[in-house]
């Protein structure tokens, strides 16, 4: 069978996949909004425990990484392989920094006995249990998506190095960009919901 290549088709496929990801997270947003509505005061208090500065830094890191991967796609089209590789490496580094920050943030909370199922958390009351349950579940699932995205970008870097992605065949590269922007998009909503609305 002849090799069938359809970049537009694979882009539609990627977008459809992103839609399923959005719906996946929207299930959690429904849970969040219902429990916020039912436990307004407790959510208000609990959110104050999170470090706004750290959250802001992580937001800026992710936004910047989104810009670098978008630029790398322009670079590959300009046939500037080295710039593309540098920009993608920058994206990976920024993603890793985000995860390291997340690690310290979670570690600090767990150190204070705030984690699902803990006695300390249960003693704070129902609203806090739900808030932190959602916090761990949603940021955890988001972090998992970052890890998957980093692996995906790792493959793209390797393909570019091997010249399997070039200026006239970069559909995989473009799709990795779309995936990474989705991760950014979700964080844009997670950030105000958990850190800002206090």
């Amino acid at each position: 069978m002849e090799v069938h290549r359809d970049d537009e088709g694979s882009k539609i496929g990627m977008w459809l996949f992103l839609f399923t990801e959005m719906v996946l997270f929207s299930g959690l947003f429904i849970v969040y909004s219902v429990y916020r509505y039912l436990n307004r005061e407790a959510f208000h208090q609990a959110a104050a425990h999170l470090d706004v500065a750290l959250g802001t830094i992580n937001t800026i890191i992710l936004l910047a990484s989104s810009a670098t991967i978008a630029m790398s796609i322009s670079a590959i089209q300009y046939q500037k392989k080295k710039q593309a590789l540098a920009l993608l490496t920058a994206t990976v580094v920024l993603g890793l920094v985000f995860l390291v920050n997340k690690y310290f943030e979670w570690g600090e909370k767990i150190g204070h006995g705030i984690y699902p199922g803990s006695e300390t958390l249960a003693s704070y009351g129902h609203g806090d249990v739900l808030f932190f349950g959602l916090y761990y579940f949603m940021t955890g699932l988001h972090a998992l998506h970052i890890v998957i995205g980093l692996v995906f970008i790792g493959f793209v870097i390797w393909y570019i190095a091997k010249d399997r992605i070039t200026h006239d065949n970069f559909s995989v590269h473009e799709n990795s960009g779309l995936y990474w922007h989705l991760v950014d998009l979700i964080w844009i909503f997670l950030f105000p919901l958990f850190y800002l609305i206090t």
Partner: peptide, 29 residues
């Protein structure tokens, strides 16, 4: 389908970590 996916993950979270989303004893509905 993703909605059932995330819902089943939450049930798994209940069984594994006691997150309390659907447990009335922990404030869930």
């Amino acid at each position: 389908t993703p909605i059932i996916g995330i819902t089943l993950l939450m049930v798994a979270g209940e069984r594994l970590f006691n997150i309390g989303f659907f447990d009335p004893a922990l404030g869930g509905d």
